[in-house]
Design a protein around this nucleic acid. Structure first.
Lengths: 340, 340
DNA sequence: CTGAAAGCGCTTACAG
DNA sequence: CTGAAAGCGCTTACAG
């Protein structure tokens, strides 16, 4: 299978490169190229397995039919699912997607953005580190199509698709309150992400609605990079008098995992002694002991909506499309909070 | 931030495009361009945020500094981890990686391979559907660098990095046998993948070593696309007389998930009534009730080794490198098999 | 209906 | 040390 180029086809068939290019791009009819010629070209191309060199095509057209997806980490199940759905949807619309992980490093995120621009992606979907306003604003300024997902910059006017973190966490906390729990710990990440901030606000709002005093000692903020080591002391302190929590809400699936592991190590009975609820989940959370009541994020919806908005903008179709979306999450009640 | 091109730099600095290109590619010294000129060029480029157009560079050099990774499904935790490690390792060696999911469709896999070739990737890492020998052999024939991971074609002489499926499954089965279980069911996938075949052989070999008769009724082979619906009857039949298994080994993590879910639904006590062991695992398998004894795959090692072999071949360095690797898995004993 | 030609933004012999 | 020029494989006005 020797590589075949446009030129080869043209020579063998005694037509011009122009004709071949036109026909293969479905512009044969509009350029009034004879059906006969079209057929010959198409058949020859198929027979010899011709596929255009995307670099050349992209360079020539200043387009690449490619979009970029920048996420913190492709290994995380939440983001890998997003990636899967983005790939599927984009492909359906005729685009290839380029993935890359920033590993929560704003500098790397910047490099990735530039690297993707220089690969001529036509648009970007970004789950930003949210410490990179500079690059985001510069995209904005260049009127380059992009949409933020999962994390957005509230101070900047951009397209985004996020989940309603405030109400998601609030609902989770209310669930605990309705079951009679009153001393509710909150294990979350150090502030920095808007999503994380919103989750804390949701927690507080639920307490307020139930007339419960907000105590800072019940909030444990771990570092994204070191939470595995910090979880032990966080839980220990929450369990100790005068805190003595009767429940904990975890603000991410991985905090729930390490937290539950730690509770088991300490032989704390869940939910009898401590009820728990998780924001976001892992595949096996319904099999865990006890099955974990979780706030489920609409992963597929996030991905599809983001691709829709992006490609709509790239192709400049519907200018009236709502390009700021806050999607609802859903509380899946299982057994980690006990029952009424 | 207006885009700046080679030509712009050359004009502003009153040097030739050649000089700029050379300097920016670290070929300034070997072409004896004055330090002074080099410094001016480098500073100007940095100041104006110059990044070369990869399409143009790639087209010109016939290279892209890109490798492709084709996997069945980026949403699967096993493959998303592979993807994460491949990306990391490749980046360290100066390559970008292009991901794509075949969704177990051999035809799509072929399209992906062609699409990646035409994006001028310099090498490919493929977790193949294993029903696409044609394309694999054609890569081989063209001496195009590639390495198969996770799944390989035993009938074809290629680079590969796989896990020792035979011994992994054998060890798992032996573990059950050593604990006194004798009626061991095996829930696996319909044959097709070499890995799956090897796992069945491992199961059989363990039985043979313990002088236990192999019974076909104890093997349940589900379809990859429909296992969620087939699991119920598979388990029902395994539990029913005359099968009445006392243990089950699952040949993939997702079979374990649905299987355990089904066992719980049927109120079967694990491990008392039925012990289970899983080939490959999910993040929360140590939190599941009971924590699941699992064969752990060396994900990071698979990824790193594959990238090493591939890039070594691309750059034609060490021709003596062992390019067929069978890595060991490890049995992580938890509680789903009970104790002695 | 079709072909010659310019151009996309680079790299790289080659000549000086 | 440096510059003019060809070339990578396409696309796309433009002229006929």
């Amino acid at each position: 299978m020797k590589k075949v180029f446009l030129k080869d086809i043209a020579e063998k068939l005694n037509v011009s490169k122009t004709a071949v290019s036109l026909v293969l791009n479905n512009k044969g009819d509009e350029n009034k190229i004879s059906q006969e010629t079209q057929k010959r070209i198409i058949e020859f191309a198929k027979e010899h397995n011709y596929v255009p060199n995307q670099l050349a095509r992209g360079l020539s057209r200043g387009k690449s039919e490619t979009i970029g997806l920048i996420i913190p980490n492709i290994s995380d199940t939440f983001y890998s699912k997003i990636a899967g759905y983005v790939e599927l949807k984009a492909k359906n619309l005729g685009y290839t997607v380029l993935f890359s992980s920033s590993n929560e490093d704003p500098k790397k995120e910047g490099e990735l953005i530039r690297s993707m621009l220089n690969r001529q992606v036509e648009g970007l979907i970004i789950a930003s580190t949210q410490q990179n306003l500079k690059d985001i604003q510069s995209l904005k300024q260049d009127k380059f199509p992009f949409v933020l997902i999962d994390r957005h910059y509230p101070e900047s006017d951009t397209n985004y698709v996020v989940v309603d973190n405030f109400n998601g966490l609030k609902t989770a906390t209310e669930h605990l309150l309705q079951l009679g729990r009153r001393k509710i710990g909150f294990i979350t990440l150090k502030p920095g992400l808007e999503a994380i901030k919103q989750r804390l606000l949701g927690y507080q709002s639920a307490l307020t609605d139930f007339d419960i005093e907000y105590k800072e000692e019940l909030i444990k903020e771990l570092s994204p990079g070191n939470y595995e080591n910090e979880i032990e002391s966080a839980i220990r302190e929450l369990l100790k008098f005068p805190n003595s929590v009767d429940s904990i809400v975890f603000s991410t699936h991985y905090l729930t995992s390490v937290g539950l592991r730690e509770l088991k190590r300490k032989n704390v009975k869940v939910p009898q002694e401590v009820a728990i609820v998780s924001f976001d989940e892992l595949t096996a959370f319904d099999l865990v002991d006890p099955p974990i009541t979780s706030v489920i994020q609409p992963v597929k919806d996030i991905a599809n909506t983001a691709v829709d908005i992006l490609i709509n903008e790239i192709e400049g179709k519907d200018s009236a499309m709502d390009n700021k979306r806050i999607l609802n999450s859903k509380l899946e009640i299982r057994k980690s909070c006990g029952t009424f």
